[in-house]
Amino acid sequence: MSAINRDILMAYLDEQLDPAARADVETHLATNPETAGELDTMRRQADTMRALYPAIGNAPVPARLDPHRLALLVQRRRWQAMAQAAMIVALLGIGITAGWLLRPTDAPALYNRLIADAVSAHTVYVAENRHAVEVASDDTEHLSTWLSDRLSTRLAMPDLTGQGFTFLGGRLLPAPALPGGRAAQLMYETASGERLTLYVTPATGIDGPEFEMVRLGAETALYWSDEAISCTIVSDQPPEALEALASVIFSQLNPVEPHENYREL
C-alpha cells in the first residue's frame, strides 16, 4: 500500500487516475477515515462550486456571442480598416501631388532675377567712362583665362567687330540671384558710343526658357541658356538688331547655332 499524498488524492477526486491507481486509492480510503473525510470535503467543495456556476447548457446564447455573426463583423471591420487605409493613401497621394503641382514657383522666377541683375549691372557700368571695365580688351587672353577660371567654365570673348561693336573689356560680378553665384560682364561699344553688355553665368541648373526677350525701360534684354552657361545680352538696340547680334554672340560663346524662335514677353 503506497502512501497517499494530497496530489494523488486530488487526482483521484478529479478523475485523473488510471484504474489501477484508483483502486489503490480506494483501498487506502477504506482503511483511512481521515483521508476519506478530507476527500469528502474536497468533493463537497467541488460540488458547491459546480452549483455556484451551473453549466450554461442550452440556454440561449446572446446574438453578440454568435461566432458566425462575429466572423462577419470581424470581416467587415477588416474591410473598413482596409478601405480606410486605402483612403488615407489616396488622400496622401492627392495631397502630395497637389503640393508638388502648387509648389512655390521660385525656380522660374530665378531666371527673371538673373535678367534683372544683368540689366542693373548694365545700367551701372555703361554709365562709367574710366572704370567701365575691370580688365580692358588689350589683355583679352588674360581676361578670358581669369573669367573662365572664376566661373569654372570655358568662356570665349566673342568678337563683334563685324557688327560694328568694339570689345571694351570685362569684369567679375556677384550674381545675387544665385547663391554664392558669380557672373562675368563683357562690354562692347559702337563707334557712336552705344554700349552693349553680356552677363554670363555658369549653367544655373534652374528651370526656365532657353530664350527670352524682355524690354526693361530703354533696355532690351535677351536671355539665353544652355547646359554650360546662361547669358543675358543687354543693350538699347531694337529687338530685331539684338536678335541678329545674339546669333553672332551665341555662335562664338557656343558652337551650337542658337534657336530661331525667341519668345517675346
Binding site: 453549466a55 450554461i56 442550452n58 446564447v61 461566432p67
Partner: peptide, 16 residues
Amino acid sequence: LDEMEACVPALRRYAR
C-alpha cells in the same frame, strides 16, 4: 465557426 459555437457555453461559464 461551428466548433467555436459549441465552445461558447463553457467559455461563458468559465468567464462568469
